[in-house]
Structure formats: structure tokens, C-alpha cells
Design a protein around this nucleic acid. Structure first.
Lengths: 227, 227
DNA sequence: AGCCGTCTTTGCGCTGGCGCAAAGAGCGGA
DNA sequence: TCCGCTCTTTGCGCCAGCGCAAAGACGGCT
């Protein structure tokens, strides 16, 4: 059982590796092909999941067409915490990005884990509050900032949790289309494409179909900060 | 000590009234004049607060001028849950709307309350997740919907937590300006004013300086649903 | 009663960025 | 190798709604 990466996760802070193995053994591992949907928005929330390998894309839909990417969930992170509560539905859908392995935990298992490992409850509160703060900031930004600035922030956010250094450059190590970056930023496919083209000319990014490399992260950071 | 309204609060679900009194006695009551700031965004978070009377406005600022109202916190509700965690800062500022009384709890008191009353931890998780879901939806809406639709939704949201029935009409029972409604919706003072004027002509709302009455809630609901 | 500060209304011009259309490019499958 | 699908690029027109300006209304205070 692969547990690498778990110790960086805020969910399993303060939990030793042996305890961790014991926890994971209480869940059920599932393997998902790229594009497979783990759960649908609105379905009764019965299980929480921890990603072992690969990545989940959480998104919510608006009646007719428009869609927002709420978050990407990488190895060691928890998805669908809501399942610890009774009578709730999943507030978002989860789709695998690339081949992905997850462990699923039933509600009673989650409650047992919380009871056995007291720090976990606080970790869950911390996790939820961090996400809340992030959403509040994104809400402020979508109101107060220009699209290009928001695209830069989106790239930096995604980079932080899924970036792979190679020299000065940073590769976003999962396939992401213009459309998905637009859904994450709250803009359109067209605007993202135009913006990335412009940045490519400036040497800030390099990209091919579904892959984005951030060639000059510093320039992007400056861009988000200035006016 | 006034505890009315507490039993509707999700924070104190499953807690009996006698236990409640005992909990409140562990905090320190403060009285705030209208407009007084209880805590500032970015300050070290040392206390959580429960509103007894009046109302808090939580807002976050963007560098130069723009501001978003995150939420209004009414009697029985908890603000600044983040203070249960060590080393965090307040992610928003809190300002009293009208004369307001709150109880403040130090971190160690909060931790003691959680330890003494096991359901509280789950209630806090539920509370955080509910807020997260609300913010995610607002984020989706600000991207996907027209301003007028969002203004209608904002009015309905505020109405739900601070509405006072009188006949068919519903009064929002605290002073709220066009600017504040704009900050809540993510639009401008001007657009809110124009929109409310139009709705006033249609008989959907009535308003004077700082007061809003929703004369036809049903019309607003339909308006948010259609196209 | 009168003043002053704050809140509200409305006209008007401007523009960011949306979204259609259509062409081009890359990748996988047979 | 060729075909077809999906992803990307770019031109172009259009409009929602922002934001200035200026006038008007309300309410609290002396």
C-alpha cells in the first residue's frame, strides 16, 4: 500500500505512519480510469475518499452548460468530507484526471477514525476552513480583478499543488485543457487561449495540447500583484 | 443572559439549555456600537464569538477599495471558528450592524467545550462545510448569472436569515445600504440602485434609505429560476 | 427650523471580454 | 498511413454593466 505524500496532507497531520496504515486498511481501495466519475453532485453522500495516486477534479454545474472547477484533489488529500455527516448530499461531482486510485471510507468508519484519533477532528475543521478561505478569496477576485490576472492566479494555484520542477520551469503534471482552466478561473475557453498565446510570446509559459509549463513563475507572480 | 435563538443554531444542536448556560458562562460578553469593528482581517485569531443580539457583518477587502460582504452573522451563530486552531489569522473583518452583543471565547475555552461536549466538533464541521458549499455556489453564480439574477438571490439569502414577516411582505430587519447589497452580490452601487428602482415599479420591493422590504418574494424566486 | 453628511437616483459614454464562426493542429486508432 | 475526433487559435461584432457626474432625498443633530 502506497502512503507516500500522506504526511504532507493536512488531514493526517499528527498521525504516525503505523497508525496510518491501520487507518487505510479500514477503507476500500478503488481504481478509476481517466474521466470516470467517482460520485455525482446531489447524490447521497455515503463515503469519504482519500486519493492514493492520480487526481480528482471536483466541479459543480449550473443549469445549462456552465461549469466551475472547485478544486483538484491530489495524493494524500481528502475528498467529500461531507460524508461524515448524516443525511447530506455531495455538493460537487468528482471525476478522475488520469488513472487514479482512491480509498473509500463509510461514514461509520470515518466516525471511528475520529473517535480513535482525536487530532483528526481538528484537522478536518482546519481543512474545511482553509478551503472556505480559499473560496472566499476566489470570490473576491472574480469580482475585483481582470480576467488575465485571475488566469495567472489560477495557474499559480494549480502549480502549487500539482507542479513538478525541472530547472527554472514548472510543469503542471496532469492533463489540463483550455476549457478546464477557464472553468477553474471563471472565464471562457477563448479568453484563456488568447491569454496563454500572449504569454507564450513573452516566454512566460509553454504549452501544447493538454500540457502547460510555467516557464517564468516569477513574472506571473508579479503580474498578479501589480495593478 | 439571553439565549433565545440558540437552539436553532447549528453550532449548538444537541446541546441542552442548561449545558448552554454553562457554556456561555465560560465566555466574556462584549457590547458593540453600530459600526464598531470586533476584529480585523489578518489579525491573530485568539477568540471565537457567538452573537447574542444584533448582527455582525463579515467582509474581506481587495487592495484598493473593492470589498466583499462574506456573510451576516445573527443571534446564536458562531463567528471566527478559526480561532480554535493555533497560529491562524482572522480571514475576514467583523463589524457590528446596529447595537450588538457577543460572547467571546478564548481558544482553550473552545477546546474545553469541544472536549466536554463531543457533538460540538461535528457541528463545527457541519457549519464549516455548509458555509463552504454556500461560497462555492456564490462563486458559480457570479460566473454564470446576470447581475440582476444575483441581486435577487442575494436579497433572498439575506431575507432567509434576517427576514421578519408582516403579512405577505418581508422586512429585512437591519439597516442595509445599496453599497452593502452590492458588496454582497459582487456588483456596483449603481447597478443595485437601478435594479431596485425597477423592481419597486413592478411592486416586488419597497425601500427607503437603509431599509428594504420584499413585497413579493415569490416573484423574486421565479426570477432567479427562469432563464 | 435649518444645516450637513450620507445615501440614492439617473443620464450617458465607454470597454472588457464573451461567444460565434471557421480554420488549423495534434493525437489515437485501425 | 490515413481518418476522425478533440483541442486550439484568431478575427470580429456586440452588449452588459461599470463608473463618472451631478442632482436630489432623507434623517440626525444643534
Amino acid at each position: 500500500m502506497k502512503t507516500a505524500g500522506f504526511n504532507e496532507s493536512d488531514f493526517f497531520l499528527d498521525i504516525s505512519t503505523t497508525q496510518l496504515d491501520q487507518i487505510i486498511r479500514q477503507g476500500k481501495v478503488r481504481e478509476l480510469k481517466s474521466g470516470a466519475v467517482l460520485f455525482h453532485q446531489g447524490d447521497p453522500a455515503t463515503q469519504s475518499f482519500v486519493v492514493l495516486e492520480g487526481r480528482l477534479k471536483l466541479c459543480i454545474l449550473h443549469e445549462l452548460g456552465k461549469e466551475i472547477v472547485v478544486r483538484y484533489i491530489g495524493p494524500g488529500e481528502l475528498a467529500a468530507m461531507v460524508a461524515v455527516l448524516e443525511g447530506q448530499n455531495y455538493p460537487a461531482s468528482a471525476e478522475a484526471v488520469g488513472l487514479t486510485r482512491v480509498v473509500g471510507f463509510e461514514r461509520r468508519t470515518m466516525l471511528k477514525i475520529i473517535a480513535d484519533h482525536p487530532p483528526v477532528a481538528l484537522n478536518m475543521i482546519r481543512n474545511a476552513l482553509n478551503r472556505l478561505e480559499e473560496m472566499q478569496n476566489r470570490y473576491l477576485e472574480i469580482y475585483a480583478e481582470q480576467v488575465e490576472q485571475r488566469i495567472a492566479r489560477s495557474l499559480l494555484r494549480i502549480m502549487k499543488q500539482a507542479g513538478k520542477r525541472s530547472g527554472d520551469e514548472i510543469l503542471i503534471d496532469f492533463p489540463i485543457t483550455r476549457q478546464e482552466l477557464a472553468d477553474y478561473t471563471g472565464t471562457t475557453l477563448y479568453t484563456v487561449s488568447r491569454t496563454l498565446s500572449a504569454w507564450q510570446k513573452k516566454g512566460w509559459v509553454k504549452s501544447k495540447r493538454g500540457r502547460i509549463i510555467i516557464a517564468n513563475p516569477h513574472a506571473l507572480v508579479l503580474f498578479t500583484e501589480n495593478f
